[in-house]
Amino acid sequence: MNKVKNYTTVNQKNTKKLMFWTAAWVISMAIAAFAPRFIWDFNTTLTIIGVLLNIAAGLGMLLANRQYLIDLDEMQRKIMLEAMGLTLGVGLVFGLSYELFEDIKLINSEPEISHVVIVMAITYLIANIKGHRKYQ
C-alpha cells in the first residue's frame, strides 16, 4: 500500500497554517483598531503600517484557506461547498433585510457589519456540523 502523500498529514499541516494566519489576522486587526488610540496616539505612519500589516495577514489567511480547500478530499470539499453556499445565502438575505429594517424604521439602531459576520459564522458552523453528520 504505497502512498504518494498522506491525506491526514497534509490536512493537519494546512489546518495549522490556516490557524496561524487567522490568529495573525485577528491580532493585527486588534492592533490596527486599538493601537492608534491607546498606544501611538494616532501617529499616521504607524497607523498605516498597522493597516498594511492587517491587509497582509488577511491575504495570508485567504491563501491558507484556498490551499486548505484545494487539499481537501472530494467529500470534505462537498461538505464545505454546501456550508459556504448556505452561509453566502444567509449572509446576503440577512444583511439586506437587516439594512432594510433600519430604512423602514423597524429597528432603531444602526446596522452593524459585525452582526452579519456573527450570523454568517454561526450559519457556517451549523452547516458544517450538519454536513459531517449527513455523511457519518
Binding site: M1, K3, D73, E74, M75, Q76, K134, Q136
Partner: peptide, 22 residues
C-alpha cells in the same frame, strides 16, 4: 483512506453508501 489519499470519514461514507465517489 491513506492508500486512496482521502479521509477516513470519506471511506466510511462510501462504504455505507452515503457518498458516491468520483
Amino acid at each position: 483512506a491513506d492508500a486512496l489519499n482521502v479521509s477516513r470519514q470519506t471511506i466510511n461514507a462510501i462504504e455505507k453508501g452515503k457518498f458516491d465517489p468520483s
